[in-house]
Amino acid sequence: MGHPQAISGRSRSRTVRLSLHLLALIGLFAVLIAQATFTGGLWPFDLRFSALIAAGGIALLAIAWWPAALAFAVIAALVRRVRWRLALWPLAVLGMVGLHAAFGPGLGFAPLGTLGLAGVLRLYAIPAALPILAGSALREAFLTNSAPVPPADGAAPPHPKRNTP
């Protein structure tokens, strides 16, 4: 059992990390909507329609590739270090490109030749990031025993024994 201050610090650290995940999620959705607008030529701009088209695209990809998405989420939840989880992203995108090349046309998707390399990377960049982000957030919420956040003035965190009477 930790000292109440240390526990409070851990809780604060977890809150910060989850907030960062939320920010990342918002950022990814913003990019997704921008991508849908520009690549789809959705003009004049209508935020709700762009968001609808973007969400529809994600839903169609999720229906087709949900086992892969689930695998990315589980792996991300099991990986301890944040930088390794980040490194999963490009690997997941490449994995999706491979899956698309092998099974995509059979599932009704356009062949790689039609989409082009840039097109297929753009197609899977954010859909591959979302399950990794979800797995990472799950780890931060339920599995991580985070270190406490240092106090704002830069002083060392209080040592439990030192403060024990």
Partner: peptide, 10 residues
């Protein structure tokens, strides 16, 4: 056509 384009369907 629009929704398909966003999901990689031609």
């Amino acid at each position: 056509v629009m929704a398909g384009r966003q999901a990689g369907k031609d």
